[in-house]
Each structure stands twice: as structure tokens, then as C-alpha cells.
Nucleic acid binder design. Structure first.
Length: 107
DNA sequence: TATTTGACCAAGA
DNA sequence: ATCTTGGCCAAAT
């Protein structure tokens, strides 16, 4: 069962993310049971299975867009297309769009 | 096998 | 608010 690499497991997790939601590199790594937040991003750059994998839905923990193979500018445009409020290269109310939903109530 | 690399994160000399 | 530093992990070279 563990025939896949860490990167492959990341792709599967990203596929679970619904449109309009985003996640952070740290969350993905934690969901896989590791702290390799850096290895997650590395997996995208090295082998971005794109466009099969929505790697554009992964942002930084600070709500920043983070990096992208095609440029942060394009990544922001894609997220905007998903309905995410991006201001000056940053996502506002990130906790409201993060995935998986952490807080029980976020009013 | 050892070294280097990053689409990161958190804290602050 | 910004920048710097250190740490962290897996995959590539």
C-alpha cells in the first residue's frame, strides 16, 4: 500500500478539496501524518501532475498565495475564479475558506 | 551514500 | 508592517 511516495499522497489529498476552498502546505503534510510542509510544495514543482491535481488550491498558512509554477499572479487569478476573496495577493478571511474546516463556528 | 534543494513555517538575536 | 534567521522534511542530483 505504501507504493506511492509522499508526493503521491499529497495529490490524493488535494483531490478531496472542493472548489471554493483552500488549504495550506502545513495542513496537507499534517493530514499525511508528517511535517514535511516543504516536501509538499516540492512535489508540486518537481512533478505537478497538473492539471489533474488542483495544486492552485494550496496556499501559505498566512493566507498568502504562495508560489506557483506559472507565477503567483496566475494562481491568484485561478483562486479568484473559485470565488476566493483575494486582496493584494492575499486571501482575506482565510479561516472561512480553509480546508478541512477547523473551527466549529466562525461567525 | 552524501549533499543540495525548495510553490514553507514560526519566531525575532 | 517588513526582513532575517533557523528549522523542518522528503525527493532529486
Amino acid at each position: 500500500m505504501s507504493g506511492q511516495t509522499f508526493a503521491d499522497r499529497c495529490y490524493q489529498f488535494l483531490l478531496k478539496i472542493p472548489a471554493g476552498k483552500v488549504t495550506t502546505y502545513k495542513i496537507v503534510a499534517a493530514a499525511l501524518g508528517s511535517k514535511a510542509y516543504r516536501a509538499v510544495g516540492q512535489a508540486m514543482k518537481r512533478n505537478p501532475n497538473a492539471p489533474e491535481v488542483p495544486c492552485h488550491r494550496v496556499v501559505n498558512s498566512d493566507g498568502k498565495i504562495g508560489g506557483y509554477r506559472g507565477g503567483t499572479r496566475m494562481k491568484a487569478a485561478l483562486l479568484k475564479s473559485e470565488g476566493l476573496p483575494i486582496k493584494r495577493g492575499r486571501i482575506e478571511n482565510l479561516a472561512n475558506y480553509i480546508w478541512p474546516p477547523a473551527a466549529k463556528r466562525q461567525f
